[in-house]
Design a binder for these strands. Structure first.
Lengths: 223, 223
DNA sequence: TTATTGCAGTTTGTATACAGTGTGCAAAAT
DNA sequence: ATTTTGCACACTGTATACAAACTGCAATAA
């Protein structure tokens, strides 16, 4: 991981944010020239940013036609969430085995900070990061960096769909409750029950997204 | 995935081959200028290739110091192989559920082709590809492309260590027998036993690599 | 009318050129 | 002798420039 920020890194980070934020719908072409003007850089760092995003699965290059944002089929979304269940329950189980008070406190702090943000002004843009930060804090004690990297990758790929769901439904409070539940079960060392809760937490989010996409597809057909 | 080949793609493919082939030891600096001269291209496609390899985990960029090949710790190698066990048994189970005669034949063809290559001249360079092709053929019927992509990623990361092991030990015949065993169990629909065999197949390879690395480290200390 | 060919415009992919930053050695200071 | 300062070199990261390739439209042919 490049730990410093070049122009290319900056563009990649911002483009990622914009794509995940829904600014570009799936399948839109990203013109290098336009983006270069946008960020007031040359096309070189833009290309490098797009290559990074390609590796993350957010865009695809086509021959001499440039980069397009990817669109996931329902089948692929289901697959991604199934993988998340597999990997996240695996890592949660390992984390619970070697959990310290300090670890629990860290996760709780993030959760409380999020509670507060939710009560004051509910910025949806930040939710995704809070959510991910909480999960990572809970998983960190497992000390499985490669696994966490894979999970992070899966989350990035599915992130914009999660946002979409949250925009249209009131799932945040539900997720919030489940997070508190997860933390409590982890504290009690109830690995099986914690993993069970995590599984349904992820699966139900998936079903919500699929339902939403299918409704949207039906609406599009009616035009 | 970019499905066409630019200069950058070509450089990336060849560099990957060279890194995985062991030409560069872990931690060596890859100078853009030198590589550009090597491939008779400018530094731009070289940079892009290195960025691609960074995403694959084969090199790392450091601020204004360029790209270095990565070196995996024993702990990370263990983690990668544990992940392979988790993901590959998962996908094998799905594959066996919907296996057709045609699928079995495809996997068997690859295996026999490899048998033949082994008996005639035993090119070690190709083994890695044969091995991966066989596993992929066996997993393909699961129709889980994202999962297969992740598995492919894990294999790329650990590939050079697998090669290393095969160079120093006579593990090929053993792997070969296990592949035949896997195919047979898959044909009989014995998912549990197939997954069990796959697990030990991967875990034993891991232990072989770790042993080899520790021996090598000890030798290095004695200098 | 429909299909085909050719051309202009646009965009990509890459080479060349340049500025900024890190590295290492040498000379000076303590 | 050890540390510090300065400078030259080397390499990276990026801007600019250019050639190849694709797209879409128009003109021509069937």
């Amino acid at each position: 991981m490049a730990t410093y920020k070049t122009r290319a890194q900056f563009v990649a980070d911002d483009l990622r944010r914009r794509i995940l934020g829904g600014e570009f719908k799936g399948g839109t072409q990203l013109r290098q020239d336009a983006l270069a003007k946008d960020y007031d850089v040359s096309r070189i760092p833009v290309r490098e940013a797009l290559l990074t995003l390609e590796a993350e699965g957010l865009v695809e290059f086509h021959a001499h036609r440039g980069a397009f944002t990817t669109e996931l089929s329902v089948a692929k979304i289901r697959e991604l969430f199934d993988l998340r269940v597999l990997l996240e329950t695996y890592v949660l189980r390992h984390a619970i085995a070697g959990l310290t008070e300090a670890d629990l406190k860290k996760a709780e702090d993030i959760l409380l900070k999020y509670d507060e943000a939710l009560n004051t002004g509910g910025e949806i843009d930040n939710w995704s990061e809070y959510n991910f930060a909480f999960h990572q804090a809970l998983y960190a004690p497992a000390e499985l960096p490669e696994t966490l990297a894979l999970i992070s990758q899966l989350n990035t790929k599915s992130d914009r769909y999660i946002r979409m769901q949250l925009l249209y439904t009131q799932e945040i409070e539900k997720a919030e409750k489940e997070h508190h539940g997860l933390l409590e079960l982890a504290r009690q060392g109830e690995a099986d029950r914690a993993c069970g809760l995590l599984r349904t937490h992820i699966q139900e989010a998936c079903e919500g997204i699929v339902t939403l996409l299918e409704e949207r597809a039906k609406q599009a057909e009616e035009l």
